[in-house]
Amino acid sequence: MRVLNQLIGIIEAELKVLLRESGVFIFVLFFPFMFSLLTYGAGQALTGGEAPLTQWFYQLIGFTIMTIALTMSSSSAWYFRRGMMTGRLEYILAAPISPLTAVLSSAVTNIVLNIAIFVVVASIGVVTVYGLSNLLNVIGVILFLALALLPAVGFNLLVGIATVVFREPEPVSNVINAIVSSVSGFTYPIIMLPSFLQALGQAMPYSYIVNGARDILAGSFEYVQLSPHLFLLAYLLLGLIFFRIGEVNYVRKSGVHW
């Protein structure tokens, strides 16, 4: 009960802050439309032919999930960085709350907001491309994301603790974001990549998330596609273990002042 109270308290505060920084919120909402239209238009211009709208939809969902992925792979890193710079992290660590609860609350806040953005973007995309009949599939994606993002939370914790150890949020999260963006099949199928990059993409949760989301929205999802996500839960386990190791061996030994 106490943990739930703490969790809700942090989520409330973080949500208020995020919603008051509306510029970022609006950018994240428009980002998938801007870039998917750009790549769709560029593709048509380069090939000289008219591409089907499903190509735009492919890009739209890709960019939306990419936004979620980038947020999810770096939200802990940024949570730590902001916490260090504002001195808030030290107060959290001096309060009777598990740092894991605090970091997870922040991750949950980001998931909630990103899913809300996804619902808006995907609904517009689905209605435009498939018509109203496929709109209910958006609900299916929400349920799917609730499971599929769990490994991403673990991934998030690993990146977060790495930033505390190396004290370099930007290089750590930027490198990881660059890798995640290029090998996860957000805007092109990963089979177009060299085999070692394909393997890297398949070892991370995001290619499964984006493919699953696309298939659910298009009505072509099969339950067997859920199986990789169960294996990928190992990320969550690893994230929890390394987070604890990092907390004891770095956070509490070296401090978290900037």
Partner: peptide
């Protein structure tokens, strides 16, 4: 709101 946030960290409703 900041104080309420900290109160929640200490487990207050």
């Amino acid at each position: 709101e900041n104080l309420i946030y900290y109160g929640r960290l200490y487990g207050l409703s």
